[in-house]
């Protein structure tokens, strides 16, 4: 149990994909202008990460590994994620229209999100079992959500600040992201000390 909590918290704070591993920067910079959009995107990504792990881990363990087809994992995983995103969208549209209305717009964008592919590949590389993989994906997804929401708040304040002309737009956003990332460096070692 302790190990699972460590994996979960590690994904949220220490190995935060956006701010510490720099995976999934495009949605982080692109959809973080308003807090409600950042929340929607973050929840949608967490959702897809969980489902992608539920699908890809058994495929790897029971199909690719026994037949020595590990080298096909990139192609198989990206196809599974693309199909899964479509499937989730159709199911949501049919059965939970209210959820589809709030998350649906973000779903197509997630197919080409490197964080989702990154987390399923990392789960395999790190040798996690099924339960550990689910916790790791959940942690990474929540970490993504956390950094999106934090950064959306920073950005809404930043929009009103007078910055030098050549820093307007992208550069000042990146520098703000850098400062948020420095804050996250401080989390290293915190979780182990809290639990251990």
């Amino acid at each position: 149990m302790k190990e699972l909590i460590l994996i979960l918290m590690g994904g949220v704070l220490i190995n935060n994909y956006v701010l510490q591993q720099t995976i999934g920067i495009c949605p982080f910079l692109g959809v973080s202008k308003k807090t409600n959009q950042a929340v929607g995107m973050g929840i949608a990504v967490t959702f897809v990460m969980l489902f992608a792990t539920l699908a890809t881990h058994p495929i790897y363990t029971y199909i690719l590994a026994p037949f020595k087809l590990e080298y096909l994992q990139i192609i198989v995983f990206i196809l599974v994620i693309a199909a899964l995103v479509q499937f989730v969208e159709i199911v949501l549209k049919k059965f939970i229209p209210s959820l589809h209305k709030s998350l649906g717009v973000y779903l197509p964008l997630i197919t080409t999100n490197c964080a989702v592919l990154g987390v399923v590949l990392n789960n395999i590389t790190d040798g996690f079992n099924f339960i550990q993989s689910i916790f790791s994906s959940l942690g990474v997804g929540l970490g993504f959500l956390l950094s999106m929401v934090l950064f959306a708040g920073v950005r809404s304040r930043m929009e009103n600040c007078p910055s030098p002309k050549c820093f307007k737009g992208v550069p000042i956003t990146l520098i703000a992201a850098s400062i948020v990332a420095i804050a996250f460096i401080g989390f290293g070692g915190v979780v182990e000390n809290l639990i251990g």
Binding site: P164, C166, F167, P171, L174, I175, A177, S178, A181
Partner: peptide
């Protein structure tokens, strides 16, 4: 990575 964001921002500026 924090430095990466920073340098990237400076380079674009």
């Amino acid at each position: 990575p924090a430095g990466g964001f920073f340098i990237y921002g400076i380079v674009i500026a």
